[in-house]
Design a binder for these strands. Structure first.
Lengths: 145, 145
DNA sequence: CTGTATCCTTAGGGATACTG
DNA sequence: CAGTATCCCTAAGGATACAG
């Protein structure tokens, strides 16, 4: 896109588009937020087959934008851990709101109406609960084996 | 992206990504929601220079996804009007939530804190107000002439 | 005004092999 | 495990020109 060279002109939507306006990035954030993935390999083996170079590129960009933090796994020094930063976590309510919107309009998604209602009514509250362990309630991933 | 041929596998985020996970689409929605644009030409002359074929393509896709409705201007039969459908309007709260998030993290956007706070606290209420005419309050577009 | 139609170029992405 | 490095190819996008 032509205008990427310049700044966002103070437009918040453009700023957001720059960070999350990419399908792969979107899905990676989903995996980090709702699917408890935290390692390169786990993200790589997500339901959609992302290729190694793309994943590495997107993770680099997300880190650059301060959306996530990369750290070494204390248990296994050769393992890295990708975790959402505060900035990334702060996007969870928005994602939940989007979640609810999709559920309302996509015939194919069938999640508990109570959960969708909560995501719509109080995304902040639900986001907080999810961060505290309610994690898999919104996981739509099919078990892979 | 490879998996587009298939369905979204019941994942709402993937469904959303399919519809709005594109920068141009994102910006078009912004213009429709917050900048009161409703004609092809108005959208074309937005702050970012979108080319004619891309705009036509995205409008077609948005219409296909039921995000907007195209109608003939009763005042000028040669003019078309693009308006958000209910589905499109229902996405406004989410966009406002994103709006607030960006404002919090992008140093370059300076909007009234009260407005940002409201977008964060009660996106549904603010969306309703905007639909009733408070429209330009969130317009970050520089006047073009 | 609201698009189509082209042409051309580049960036994004799939596949795969390889490395510390 | 966590990437990097290529290679190749297609689709997306820009720049016009043109048309109903």
């Amino acid at each position: 896109m032509k205008f990427e060279e310049s700044k966002w002109n103070g437009c918040p939507i453009r700023y957001a588009a720059e960070i999350i306006g990419d399908k792969w990035t979107f899905l990676i954030l989903r995996d980090l937020m709702f699917r408890n993935k935290s390692s390169y390999t786990a993200l790589l083996h997500s339901s959609e087959k992302i290729s190694t170079n793309i994943l590495a590129d997107r993770l680099r960009k997300l880190e650059k934008h301060g959306m996530l933090e990369k750290s070494v796994d204390p248990d296994n020094k050769k393992q890295f851990i990708y975790a959402l930063s505060k900035k990334g976590l702060d996007l969870m309510p928005t994602m939940l709101s989007l979640f609810a919107w999709s559920c309302e309009y996509d015939d194919e998604t069938h999640l508990p109406a109570s959960l969708v209602g909560e995501a719509k009514r109080d995304p902040w509250g639900l986001a907080k609960q999810l961060r505290q362990g309610k994690a898999l309630a919104l996981n739509t991933e099919k078990s892979s084996r």
